[in-house]
Write a protein that binds this DNA or RNA. Sequence first.
RNA 1: GGGCCGGUAGCUCAGUUCGGCAGAGCGUCUGGCUUUUAACCAGACGGUCGGGGGUUCAAGUCCCUCCCGGCCCGCCA
Length: 548
Amino acid sequence: MSEDRETQDADDASAEPKRAFWADEVADEIEARDPEDPIVIKGGVSPSGVAHLGNFNEIMRGYFVAAVLRERGHEVRQVFTSDDRDPLRKLPRKLADTDGNIVGLGDVDAGALGRNLGRPYTDIPDPFGESESYAAHFAALLKADADRLGVPVEMLSNTELYEDGTFDEVVEHVLGHADTAREVLSEYQAKVDADYVPFNPICEECGKITERVTSIDLEAGTVDYVCTDMTVGDETIEGCGHEGTATFREGKLPWRFEWPGQWQVLGVDFEPFGKDHAEGSWPSGEDIARNVLGIEPPVPMVYEWFTLNGEALSSSQGNIVTVPEMLDLLEPEVLRYFFALNPRKARDLDISRLDQLVDDFDRFERAYFGDVDDETLTAFAERAYPFVVDEVREDRVRLPYTFAAVLGMTDDRDLRIEMARNEGYFDDDTPEWAIEEALERVDRARAWAERLDNEYNYRIQEDLPEVDVDDAVAAALDELAEFVAVGHDGEEIQGEMYETARRHDIEVGDFFEAGYLLFFDQPQGPRLGEFLGELDTEFVVARLRRES
RNA sequence: GGGCCGGUAGCUCAGUUCGGCAGAGCGUCUGGCUUUUAACCAGACGGUCGGGGGUUCAAGUCCCUCCCGGCCCGCCA
C-alpha cells in the first residue's frame, strides 16, 4: 500500500471499507443494531395467480443476507409471509398449477373464483381442487420453488397469524390508539379522515373483507361493522349490507399497519422490498412502526425490478417465467447467481441470451478459484460464490452453454462425452461425478435450443430426410462415404470434405449443405466433419449413401 | 406537477459510497487451426460514461440543470 493511501485512510479512519458483496453491507447494517438472535429476515407477497420469478426477489435477496449472517455466527430465521388474508380483488388472467405450469383462467372454474371476489385468499377454494385454499395452493408453489433453489425459508400464513392470536397485541394497540394511527397515516394517505378505523373485519354473512367499522369495543375486543361495497379501480365489489360484530381475529389491519405489525410480532430485523414500496408503504411503515407501535423498523433494502426479454413482468400479458421453467434451462446455481447480482440495478433476463448469463456465471465461478484477472469480479466472487453453489468443488467441469447445446443435438450420452472429451473438457482424471454434473447442462441447453428454436436447435435425424442432390454432389457424397467407411477421425473427415468437394468441382458450401440436410434436415449446422466422426460409422456411411 | 431509482462499448454488465489511466465477457471483424460452414486459439475494431454547465491539478464518480425509462405520490398490496 502506498503512502498516499495510508494518509488517505488516516484522514478518514471512520470510513467503512467497501464491500464487494451487497449482502455484506446489509449484514453490517443489521449487526450495527445489535439484534438479538435469532435475527429475523422477512419477505412476503400477496397470493396472486402465478408465483413468478419476480416474486423470488423477496426470497433470494433475503437468502443471501441470511447466509452471510449465518457465516458470521448468527442464528438466522428467514420467514416469508403469504399475505393471504388480503381479499381477492380481481381475477388473475393466468394461474399456475401444482407443477408450476401456467394455465389460463379458462382452464379452471372461473365462475367459482368470480363469486369469491372480496374474500380473503384463505377462504377461497383452490381452483385446482388440491390444496386447502387458493392461498395454500399459491404458498405451496412458492415453497416448492424455494426448495428447488435450496433456500430454507419458513412460510407463514398471515391469516394464521390473525387466527392464532399472534396479531392480537398489535390489533389491540392500533385500535386502542386509533387517533394516533389516523394522525400518522394521514400524512401519507389523503383519504384518512376522522371516521377512518384501521381495521377491516370479515363479514360474517358474505365472507368479504369490509371497510366500514362503526364502533370499537376495546374491552370486549370487538368491532361493529357494516358490509359495504369495495371499490377496485373502476370496478365495484358489492357488500351485502350486513351489520355485525367481529373479534380482533376476524379481520385484518390495512396493509399500511399490517406490514409494521408483522415487523413487531415477528421481530423482523431485515426486509427487502420492491421499488413499488419504496415511496409508499416504506415511509409510512417506518413512521407507524416508530410512532404508533413504538418499535424500530427493520433494515430496509429496495430492490429494482428486472425485466423479462426486455419487457416488464406481466402475468396478464403472459410475460412471466417461473422457477421450474427456468430450471429446465439453467442449473439452480446460475439462477441463484442472477439474484446475487446488485439488487439496485434494473436488469434484463433475456431468455434468448441465456448463454450469456451462463457464461457470466462460469466466469464468476472461475474468478472464485482465482482464474480470472479481474479484481472487482474476484472480490465479489470470493464473497458471493460459496452462497451461490451448494458445495464448493474446485474440479467441477462446466461446458460452455452453447457447446452444451451442440452436444444436445444427439441423445447419445457416450457420444456427448466423447465430443466433450475431444474438445478437452474431460480427460482421464475427470471424476465421474464431474462428468455427470457437466452433462446436466446439456439437457438444459437442449431445452433452451428447442424453446427458442434457435441456431442450436438441430437434431440428428434418425430417418433419412428427403434430400435432392444433383449427380456431382451425389458422387461426392458416395466418395466421402468410402472415406468414412475406411475409418477416419472427425478432423480427417472435416478436411476430406473440402478435398472431395474440390475434386468434384462443386461448391464447398453446397456440399456441406447437402450433408447438413442429410443429417439434420436443415441447411446449416455444427462443424460437420468432426460431428460425423463421433457418430456410428455404419450409420454415417449409409446416410451419406442416402440408403437409410 | 413533486419524489425515489436507473441511464457506462452492438449486447449483458463491473467501476459511482471515499474524485486519480475508460474496463470485462459476449458479439462483430481479421487472422490461425491442411479447411468460407456457428465448438477451439490469437489479434483488432468498438465510448459524447444520457445532454449541458459548474467545482477541481484531475470528474463516469461531487454540485446545478435538462432529457429518457421504471416506480411512487388515489385505492389496494
